[in-house]
Design a protein around this nucleic acid. Structure first.
Length: 270
DNA sequence: ATGGTGGGTTGCCCA
C-alpha cells in the first residue's frame, strides 16, 4: 500500500497534472493540501472515474484539504478536536479548512495544512504554534488510548526541522526567516517525542533533498528548496514502512505545483 | 538590474 501527500496549490488549476500523477504513481491514498476551492467546485469526477473515493474540506479560496483513497475511506472528520481559530474572540475569527481525517484500510490518515507563521513577529506565528501543540496533544492521546494505532499525520508542515532542510541555513538565520526558528522546530520535535517518525527521511537522505521550491527567483533550477512536507507515522505504521521517495519530476515543466509529492510504501498490514 | 511567480471570490491577499 502506498500513501502520498501533496500540496497541489489549487486543485482546479492542477487537475490534469494531478490526474496524470494519480494514474502514474499508483498510490492508494493521496492526501492533498491547498485545494483552494469549496465543495461546489471540487473536481469529484477526477477521482471517481479513476476508482478513488474522495473527501474534501474547503470553505473558500484559501487552504482546503482532501483525502482520496482506493482502499476505503471511513469516519471522515473535518478539523481536529479543539483546532485553534485565528483571531479568536475577534470579529473576523473563523475556522480554516486545514485538517481532514479519514480511515483508509486501517490507517487513520490526517491531511494537514499547517498555518504559515508569515514572520517571526507576526500574529500568525503564535497561531501556528498553538495549532501544532493542540494537534500533538490529541495525537499523543490517540496513541495513549491505542498504542498499536496506525496513524499518519501528513501534509505541508511549513517547518524545516533540520539545518540541511533548507539550501542556506545561514541566510535563513541572518534574514530571520520562518520555518527554521527554534519554536517551530520544537513544535515539530514534540510530535517525535509523542512517538511519530518522519517515515520518508531514512529513504530520502539529505542534504539537498527538498519537497518545495518557491516559484520566485528560479529556486527550482537553482536547486534551492526546502523540505517541509512530511508523512509522520505512529510506531505501528512506521514498522510497516519499506520505502519512500519524493517525486521531484512533478515540480518540473509548465503548470507544476511549487511542492512535489512525498510517497511512502507500506508492507501488508497485520 | 537588488527583481524575478503563480494561485484565487484579482486590481489585492496569500504563499
Amino acid at each position: 500500500m502506498k500513501i502520498a501527500t501533496w500540496n497541489v496549490n489549487s486543485l482546479r488549476a492542477r487537475a490534469d497534472r494531478v490526474e496524470g500523477w494519480l494514474l502514474r504513481s499508483g498510490v492508494d491514498v493521496l492526501a492533498i493540501q491547498e485545494t483552494k476551492c469549496r465543495d461546489e467546485n471540487f473536481p469529484w469526477e477526477l477521482f471517481e472515474r479513476n476508482g478513488y473515493e474522495v473527501a474534501h474540506f474547503g470553505l473558500n479560496q484559501w487552504n482546503g484539504v482532501a483525502i482520496a483513497s482506493r482502499v476505503g475511506l471511513e469516519d471522515v472528520e473535518r478539523t481536529f478536536p479543539d483546532q485553534p481559530v485565528f483571531g479568536k474572540g475577534g470579529i473576523e475569527a473563523e475556522q480554516e479548512a486545514r485538517a481532514i481525517g479519514a480511515t483508509c484500510n486501517g490507517v487513520r490518515v490526517w491531511s494537514l495544512y499547517v498555518p504559515n507563521g508569515r514572520a517571526l513577529d507576526d500574529e500568525h506565528m503564535p497561531y501556528k504554534l498553538e495549532w501544532l501543540a493542540t494537534l500533538n496533544k490529541h495525537a499523543s492521546e490517540w496513541l495513549a488510548q491505542d498504542p498499536k494505532a496506525q496513524i499518519a499525520l501528513v501534509g505541508d508542515w511549513n517547518i524545516a526541522p533540520l539545518d540541511e532542510d533548507v539550501w542556506d541555513i545561514e541566510m535563513f538565520r541572518t534574514e530571520g526567516f520562518t520555518h527554521v526558528s527554534e519554536p517551530e522546530r520544537e513544535a515539530f520535535r514534540a510530535f517525535e517525542r509523542s512517538g511519530f517518525t518522519d517515515a520518508a527521511r531514512a529513504y530520502t537522505p539529505g542534504p539537498g533533498v527538498y519537497t518545495y521550491w518557491d516559484y520566485k527567483q528560479l529556486r527550482f533550477p537553482k536547486k534551492e528548496g526546502m523540505r517541509i512536507d512530511f508523512i509522520l507515522a505512529s510506531p505501528a505504521l512506521e514498522a510497516r514502512v519499506v520505502g519512500a521517495h519524493i517525486d521531484r519530476e512533478e515540480r518540473k515543466g509548465k503548470g507544476a505545483s511549487d511542492h512535489a509529492p512525498v510517497v511512502v510504501e507500506l508492507a501488508d498490514g497485520a
